[in-house]
Design a protein around this nucleic acid. Structure first.
Length: 573
RNA sequence: GCCCUCGUAGCUCAGGGGAUAGAGCACCGGUUUCCUAAACCGGGUGUCGCAAGUUCGAAUCUUGCCGUGGGCACCA
């Protein structure tokens, strides 16, 4: 039997051992000034539950061999002595590692603790009293959300959930701009379709590059939006019977914005995503904040006029060239409102300001962060999560998508095809900074080859066992003795379960939800090994009940973990 | 040309300066009078892109080179 690794033990044992080892080291003659102990969890179970490399690190300091130092520390620890209800053994191995094994009584207490904590197991208080803002999606309402937005949405929402579970007071915000060029073109696109609907004799023209030529009504803008939803909006306007002044392009824009925003919210809602606030870029103009920022840059000699435009000295931030803040037309480039927006967020007092951006922003956000910093704000509070692009794969071939032809796959279509849970999980299961290959065939497969089903199945199976146990007459109440859980699969499972809080905390700290997804797979694997080796129904009542407690704790860990990922934990499949 | 990402098994990818670098898929073989076979068990020879450097120790940190993707507009 191959047992899964034990990612859990470290925080439990570490603080205790840290104290004990430092105490021994001071008896042995002390440590260098800025020295601190390092612990790690061995990949190999033969190396115990926790290892310390202190002997190797201090070989030079003590002018002794690492193994000799390890021997001295071990002797020192044993004469303290170590608490046998916490640590069951200390061994020296390899070049001088100290390998510690956790006492099983400690594990049983910890297991009881999981059960007692129930739905709150996994929560930690690292962010207690702190506030975080996660800004994500932030697509201008020019069309339906696409697969690419989906990765953004799921990452942002899950990061918010992770922060919530680590004690932060979290808000989700959507930033958009309804006053820019994109939205103007959107209004003109709708207007052109509207006119064409009213007047079938209205001429058409061809736009686009060679190979991608598309027929559109004559008034259609060259870079207009081509999706069918534009004509739908136009037809709805006609059907509404409203008298519209066709010169009032803004009316078409507003109609489009309203309709599209409602659809975006509905799409997000399918994935259990709800924004707390929407921030309109326009408010930065209305408040005049934007122009104050330029003055501040000028005062610091970081902005100047040239060729009728206002330039930001990005060369002062290490860039090759300066960049334009305000065009000669008087219209700011995106940098200026972006800087303003981030200052606004920092002034709202958040301890962490997380942005979720696609890879196309990778080179531009540093201008914004450095600009904010240059104005005296604590830009270290800004954390930018960059994710790489998504490729859909069907039958081993990439699905061709073209924004130009509006032949992209929408997020709704993706969810229609593979389901909401699978959509969320697939967007989360890879590190944000790796290019994501979304295999549609795998996503639709209802077997253990699909990682989502594998996790959900483990949960459903536990619930099934618990139902069955009740049906077969196992008394609800009775003696439970967790100390009966001595099989190596049982011990390994307990150790794995204990890792949930640390895994969530680490994923939150690094803004990397995939860590939790990977951890849950380990839990499911460890449970499956337990399931294969240890029966519940049919055993003596007290052993059966003890194992049921372990199974319940496993279900809790799976459900809590899946909840953080925004994925359901079904009782039956 | 410059900046940023990534480069790990046939494929998709984990990997927090540590011990013999892992998982899933695929492929091969086995398991069902037994709590969900939507399952389980067994099977891994890889220049961790290449080369230097730092370190007791490097897939991990530094630098250079090669390759992928993204970006280098008075677009966002």
């Amino acid at each position: 039997m191959r047992l899964s690794s034990t990612p859990a033990i470290k925080p439990i044992m570490q603080s205790y051992l840290h104290q004990q080892i430092m105490s021994v080291l001071s008896q042995l003659g002390g440590t260098p000034p800025d020295f601190d102990l390092e612990f790690q969890q061995p990949a190999n179970p033969d190396h115990g539950d926790l290892a310390c490399n202190v002997a190797m690190q201090l070989a030079r300091h003590f002018k002794k061999s690492p193994r000799q130092i390890a021997e001295d520390i071990k002797n020192g620890l044993e004469s303290l002595p170590l608490d046998p209800t916490k640590i069951s053994s200390v061994e020296i191995a390899g070049p001088g590692f100290l390998n510690f094994r956790i006492a099983s009584t400690y594990l049983f207490d910890a297991l009881q603790d999981i059960i007692d904590q129930g739905e709150t197991f996994g929560r930690t208080g690292l962010g207690k009293g702190k506030r975080a803002l996660v800004e994500f999606v932030s697509a201008n309402p020019t069309g339906p959300l696409t697969v690419g937005h989906g990765r953004n949405a799921v990452l942002g929402d899950t990061i918010a959930r992770l922060l919530d579970w680590t004690g932060y007071d979290v808000e989700r915000e959507y930033y958009f701009n309804d006053a820019g060029r994109q939205m103007r073109v959107l209004g003109e696109s709708v207007k052109a379709r509207y006119l064409a609907e009213l007047d079938p004799e209205l001429g058409t023209k061809w736009i686009g590059d060679e190979g991608e030529r598309i027929e559109v009504p004559l008034p259609f803008p060259e870079d207009g939006y081509l999706g069918d939803y534009i004509a739908d909006i136009a037809r709805e306007l006609i059907a509404s019977g409203e008298q519209i002044d066709v010169e009032d392009t803004d009316r078409f824009k507003r109609a489009a914005e309203e309709k599209i925003f409602a659809e975006i919210e509905a799409t997000l809602s399918r994935m259990a995503i709800k924004m707390d606030s929407y921030f309109n870029e326009r408010s930065l103009y209305d408040s005049g904040q934007i122009w104050k920022i330029i003055d501040l840059f000028r005062e610091k000699d970081l902005a100047y006029d040239k060729d009728g435009a206002v330039w930001l000295k990005t060369t002062a931030f290490g860039k090759e060239a300066d960049t334009v803040l305000v065009k000669s037309t008087g219209e700011p480039t995106y940098r200026l409102p972006d800087i303003g927006y981030h200052i606004e967020k920092l002034e709202r007092g958040y301890d962490r300001v997380v942005d979720v951006f696609g890879a196309d922003h990778i080179a531009t956000f540093p201008d914004v962060v450095e600009g904010v910093r240059a104005l005296g704000y604590d830009a270290d509070r800004i954390e930018v999560v960059i994710y790489q692009f998504v490729t859909l794969v069907r039958s081993g071939q990439p699905v061709k998508m073209s924004t130009r032809k509006a032949t992209y796959v929408t997020l709704d279509e993706l969810m229609d095809e593979v389901g909401e849970d699978v959509t969320r999980f697939f967007f989360l299961m890879r590190s944000p900074n790796t290019h994501l290959e979304f295999d549609l065939d795998l996503a639709k497969e209802a077997s253990d080859t699909n990682p989502v089903f594998y996790l959900q199945y483990a949960h459903a199976r536990i619930q099934s066992i618990l139902r069955k146990a009740t049906e077969t007459g196992l008394p609800e109440r009775g003696e439970v003795s967790l100390a009966m859980l001595v099989h190596e699969a049982e011990i390994a499972l307990i150790k794995t379960l204990l890792g949930l809080p640390e895994q969530i905390a680490r994923a939150a700290e690094l803004n990397e939800p995939h860590r939790l997804a990977n951890f849950l797979r380990e839990v499911a694997v460890a449970f499956t090994q337990f399931y294969g080796n240890c029966r519940i129904i049919g055993e003596d009542d007290s052993l059966a009940r003890s194992r049921m407690e372990l199974a319940k704790a496993t279900a809790l860990v799976l459900r809590n973990g899946l909840t953080v990922l925004g994925i359901s934990a079904p009782d039956r499949m």
